[in-house]
């Protein structure tokens, strides 16, 4: 008799496509990010019921709708604390938070350092197009300083009609590195294969992992041409274990007019929140069965 082993069929990208067609403009970089995420899921053969994609508000916040998996689309700027809640409620889930540069680093910016230092095992993919797309073209925290009215922009002149953008541009990779992030990377939506590989490695990382996914907005701030020129891979011999070098690298990119793609920094030496919780439980109930609530009442008797 032939022993039959129930094989889990290898999933394909299309298995992660939902019945909802993306609502993004033609040419939006987010299509590339969506497909890279789906490709990463397929490579890991994840069950849709075991995935939760969390998003805030913005064009990129619509992404969960387009994936055949669980998702939760919340209020503006709060994807990170929501994602932490999901993961802590069920550590077996693969939890991905997605959003844009405005959602993550303007309204939600206060959560980033805490998501990093809390180190809950979630992956945060920021689709950075350096502009507010859904509200039609206002400057975002990553819009280059002095950036003036764009040829195709409709709203930017209304917001910065005289001198262009007055505020300085945020350097999100430098921020996450300095906050103490244990997995810090950047990719470009036009480099689909590399992006899905990096997202896959981010998911594998035990702790908070950060992916800056450069994703141009052809409608309000079309950066395809300059970014294609500016993007270079990190050197082949790049030492991703050196945090100071990584900070140095991202600090000089603006001066040098380049964007590096790859994993700037990765360490396995930072135990995740859930790993630390194991020792909390060990001390709280001695690694045996949990207390009954009735037993807890004894302290008031």
């Amino acid at each position: 008799m032939v022993e039959s082993v129930a094989e889990i069929p290898q999933k394909k990208i299309k298995d992660y496509r939902s019945e909802v067609k993306p609502t993004w403009c033609p040419g939006c970089g987010d299509f590339g990010v969506l497909s890279a995420i789906q490709r990463a899921f397929a490579a890991k053969n994840l069950e849709p019921k075991d995935i939760v994609i969390v998003s805030g508000i913005g064009c990129s916040g619509r992404l969960p709708e387009f994936v055949n998996a669980y998702g939760i689309h919340v209020v503006h700027g709060r994807a990170l604390p929501t994602a932490a809640g999901v993961k802590l409620a069920n550590p077996d889930l693969t939890v991905i938070a997605v959003g844009g540069d405005g959602d993550g680093f303007a309204i939600g910016g206060g959560h980033v350092p805490h998501a990093v230092r809390r180190n809950v095992d979630i992956t945060y993919i920021v689709m950075d197009n350096q502009v507010y797309g859904l509200t039609k073209g206002q400057p975002s925290p990553t819009t280059p300083t002095g950036m003036a009215a764009l040829k195709r922009s409709t709203s930017m002149p209304k917001m910065a009609p005289y001198e262009g953008v007055l505020e300085n541009q945020l350097n999100m990779l430098a921020m996450v590195l300095v906050y103490g992030g244990g997995f810090v990377s950047r990719t470009f939506s036009s480099q689909a294969t590399q992006m899905s590989e990096i997202i896959g490695r981010a998911i594998d990382h035990n702790g908070f992992s950060f992916v800056q996914a450069m994703s141009p907005c052809p409608t309000f701030y079309n950066t395809y041409d300059p970014w294609k020129e500016a993007f270079v891979d990190l050197p082949e011999d790049w030492d991703s274990a050196d945090r100071i070098k990584a900070i140095d690298k991202v600090m000089y990119e603006e001066r040098d007019g380049v964007f590096h793609s790859g994993i700037f920094y990765k360490t396995d030496d930072l135990p995740s929140y859930l790993t630390k919780m194991d020792s909390v439980y060990e001390k709280a109930y001695g690694g045996e069965s949990v207390s009954s609530v009735d037993a807890l009442l004894d302290q008031y008797a």
């Binding site: 919340v74 209020v75 604390p81 929501t82 932490a84 809640g85 409620a89 809390r118 949990v290």
Partner: peptide, 26 residues
């Protein structure tokens, strides 16, 4: 932790309520 649960001190009340929303969803 004695009953196997999770307690999280968040960075603000907005994170507190949205973490609750996430955990309830899960």
């Amino acid at each position: 932790p004695r009953v196997g649960g999770v307690l999280l001190q968040t960075e603000d009340e907005i994170a507190a309520i949205t973490s609750c929303v996430g955990a309830s969803f899960a």
